[in-house]
């Protein structure tokens, strides 16, 4: 039982990071009308930035700002490319997927060449928090706790923004009906650029939480995270933000419990086999596609 509770907590913290990633991906899909395959690569580059910043300074706030800045910058840099692609005649959303795949390839290769000679990096204990809080038999690392709290806060803030502010209403309006949004006078291009900005922040945040939770980064992490993010978004239903919330948390929990009871890398397969089965049985997702 203790193992179960400990794994549940770590699952929730992992899950909330997945939620951030899936939400960012869905936001791009709904507002900017692109499939941002390179998003997890941006997150990993942002993790590398944090690792690099840790060498220079130990001021945690500065490190967090550095991570988020890089993520936002990369996200905004990709915007002109996608806007250009979307403006080409007779081009559908698949083209943005193909282009973002190219961008992901470039980012991955740059990481495996340029950062730490392509070796995985480990975050020093001073970043993760090192020491462990224990309640009886249950032990939770500080990093886990931070990731859980940070993840929950970030997700709540984002959903508040989406449902209670004007900008969030713009996002949902564009997602739902582009023409009507235009007629109401919503500045489409500006809002779309703003969505890249928000997604950049979400990406930077998940990078920081990731680094606290798993404590390492490698050039291949992006590919792995991309796969999970995309699979969750399909299982939940493309563009379905609520579904993404539920399925992201669920994946985190399933994975953590699988790690607790099954050895090694087989535990990763379990989650993927489950998701593959769900997609094959219900290709339109558990909660319905919203695009």
């Amino acid at each position: 039982m203790e193992i179960f509770i400990a794994q549940l907590i770590s699952g929730l913290s992992l899950g909330s990071i997945y939620v951030l990633l899936v939400t960012g991906f869905n936001l791009m899909l709904l507002v900017a009308k692109i499939i941002q395959f390179a998003y997890p690569q941006i997150v990993v580059i942002s993790m590398y930035t944090c690792w690099w910043a840790l060498k220079i300074t130990s001021n945690k706030l500065l490190i967090i700002i550095a991570g988020i800045t890089v993520s936002v910058a990369l996200s905004l840099l990709s915007e002109p490319i996608f806007r250009k692609i979307s403006s080409i005649k007779d081009v559908d959303i698949n083209a943005t997927f193909i282009a973002s795949m190219g961008i992901a390839m470039i980012m991955m290769d740059v990481m495996s060449h340029s950062f730490n000679y392509g070796f995985p990096v480990a975050f020093p204990p001073k970043w993760i928090g090192g020491n462990i809080l224990s309640f009886g038999l249950i032990t939770i690392s500080k990093g886990q706790l931070f990731a859980l709290v940070g993840g929950v806060i970030a997700v709540s803030v984002f959903f508040y923004l989406l449902y209670r502010t004007n900008q969030g209403r713009f996002f949902r309006a564009i997602a739902e009906n582009r023409l009507a949004a235009e007629l109401v006078g919503i500045p489409i291009t500006k809002t779309s650029i703003f969505s890249y900005f928000i997604v950049g922040i979400l990406g930077g945040f998940s990078a920081i939480l990731f680094s606290m939770l798993i404590g390492s980064a490698s050039p291949w992490l992006g590919e792995f995270v991309a796969l999970k993010m995309l699979a969750v978004s399909i299982v939940a239903g493309l563009g379905n933000l609520h579904g993404g919330l539920v399925c992201g948390l669920l994946l985190g929990i399933i994975e953590a419990i699988a790690v607790g009871y099954i050895s090694g890398s087989w535990s990763n397969v379990i989650a993927f086999v489950i998701m593959l089965a769900v997609i094959l049985i219900k290709p339109e997702g558990l909660f319905g596609t919203k695009i």
Binding site: I81, K84, I85, I88, V91, A95, I98, A99, M101, G102, I103, A104, M105, I106, M108, D109, V110, H113
Partner: peptide, 15 residues
């Protein structure tokens, strides 16, 4: 650096 070359080609061709 061929992955970078391939990636760049992919982006350029779409553009």
């Amino acid at each position: 650096w061929r992955q970078v070359i391939y990636g760049a080609l992919l982006v350029l061709i779409i553009l």
